[in-house]
Design a protein around this nucleic acid. Structure first.
Length: 437
RNA sequence: GUGGGUAUAGCUCAGUUGGUUAGAGCGCCAGGUUGUGGCCCUGGAGGCCGUCGGUUCGAGCCCGAUUAUCCACCCCA
């Protein structure tokens, strides 16, 4: 049969067989973030379009051609968030968190939306884990958030990844640098590609990122921002490097990291892999000292990053990272007959109420099929319960790993008896393991 | 937005110069044990061969369009 419809282009379903991995990643991320003092924050999936125009920047590709923007029924312009920082900063301003104790440290798990042509590691709806630290101008904060990303990646078993850092200066040194850059590229005007010719007027910094071979060649000789930092930015960057080295975090300086969101200044960084195709930036972020003020908040700095969770899973797979298996079913009950089926349903309900993962047959299949099913569930024990046994309050229980069976009595307190049985198994497992040492 | 590859079963893929009723492995279901899983054996279900049009006596195969998907550019997570 033909399906009625299919998922929209560039979206993905997370199926039950995927969800253990998603939960593992999200829990690990939130947990590590909490240890660094970052607590989860939830903001709306859509915001006023103006927020992103102001935060991300009118001239960026994200705003100009990638946003899902629509008018609601009262004709307000609404946009599905293309990234997470703007919403977090907006919420922090709106609830006056920045008038309280600083820094404000928040984390988030969100889906983001960008209208792009999908390819490996790039979707129209994708998921991010991110952190934002608001209020501290010190490179201590830059180092802290980088350390957090680094630890998260390590914990998740991501090995094939490298950290690149750069400084793109501040509102004092960048304009002077841009003048120099424009002068330099103007002297090579006739060789630049078409898009770079417009970039020359709007944002010459972007030419450095151009992938066309000729522009690349010209850009290679261009003056680097990192060589034209003001003393304050110079000092900030030096201290960040000192701190990363003190923490034993490996990094490389990549003077060509520019980043396409306008709010960044000073520190920018990316965790990049070559193992998942052309879209190798798994985590990207930096400092955004003017953003809070730009959005109508106090004059306070900020720094943060976001990690693409689909790309993260790709690089985890490429790194052969292990993810935990779903919790096994502790007891599967295979009833034979109508009365037994009702009793089985009641028993598993009791066990579940006691916190045990238990299941029973609902398909009315043969015992053989039920055993097969129990095996696929990874059941630790399977109980066979026939109408005749039920009448005698008895049942057979089988330990699936060994195949051993035993007859048991079904008392009123069977649930508790079973919990004790499982506990004993755990104790004997531990004893066996200890004996082997 | 630009370029290239691909489209056959739930998944991974065969399918001869165009020729009867389209295949395999895995998965699913059932049987081999009238009440016991894994291994093995046997059988079964499941396909508008992406869609529309064209060429032809005849198209899964050739041509065109379209859609989807993958990859790359651009950009970013």
């Amino acid at each position: 049969m033909k399906p009625l419809t299919s998922a929209p282009k560039g979206t993905q379903d997370a199926l039950p067989s995927d969800i253990t991995r998603w939960h593992y990643i999200e829990r690990t991320a939130l947990d590590i973030a909490e240890r660094y003092g970052f607590f989860e924050m939830r903001t709306p999936t859509f915001e006023h379009t103006e927020l992103f125009n102001r935060a991300v920047g009118d001239t960026t590709d994200v705003v100009q051609k990638e946003m899902y923007t629509f008018n609601d029924k009262k004709d307000r312009s609404i946009t599905l968030r293309p990234e997470g920082t703007a919403g977090v900063v907006r919420a922090a301003i709106e609830h006056n968190l920045l008038g309280g104790q600083l820094p404000v440290k928040a984390s988030y798990v969100i889906s983001c939306f960008r209208y792009e042509k999908p390819q490996a590691g790039r979707l129209r709806e994708f998921h991010q884990f991110g952190v934002e630290s608001l209020g501290s101008p010190s490179p201590a904060s830059d180092a802290e958030v980088i350390a957090l990303a680094n630890q998260l990646l390590q914990t998740l078993g991501v090995s094939k990844i490298k950290l690149f850092i750069n400084s793109i200066g501040c509102k004092h040194c960048r304009p002077a640098y841009q003048v120099k850059l424009r002068e330099y590229f103007s002297s090579h005007k006739e060789k630049l590609c078409e898009t770079c010719l417009t970039r020359l007027e709007t944002n010459p910094l972007r030419i450095i990122d151009c992938k066309s071979p000729i522009c690349k060649e010209i850009a290679a000789q261009a003056p680097k921002m990192i060589d034209h930092l003001c003393p304050e930015c110079e000092e900030h960057f030096a201290e960040l490097r000192e701190r990363l080295e003190a923490m034993g975090i490996n990094y490389e300086i990549d003077p060509d990291i520019v980043r396409g969101l306008d709010y960044y200044c000073r520190t920018v960084f990316e965790f990049v892999t070559e193992a998942i195709g052309a879209q190798g930036t798994v985590c990207g972020g930096g400092r955004y000292d003017g953003l809070i003020e730009e959005l109508g908040g106090p004059t306070l700095p900020g720094v943060g990053w976001a990690m693409g969770l689909e790309r993260l899973q790709l690089v985890m797979a490429a790194s052969n990272a292990e993810t935990p298996a779903p919790l096994p079913c502790e007891l599967f009950i295979a009833p034979m007959g109508r009365a037994a089926s009702i009793a089985a349903g009641t028993l598993v309900q009791k066990l579940r109420a006691e916190g045990v993962s238990a299941d029973c047959e609902t398909m009315g299949r043969s015992l053989k099929a039920q055993m097969r099913y129990a095996d696929k569930l990874g059941a630790v024990y399977t109980m066979v319960l026939g109408d005749n046994e039920l009448a005698e309050c008895k049942a057979t229980i089988k330990e699936m790993a060994t195949g051993n069976t035993a007859e048991i009595t079904l008392g009123d307190d069977f649930a508790n008896e079973f919990i004790k049985l499982s506990l004993q198994r755990c104790i004997s497992d531990v004893a066996d393991a200890a004996a082997k040492l």
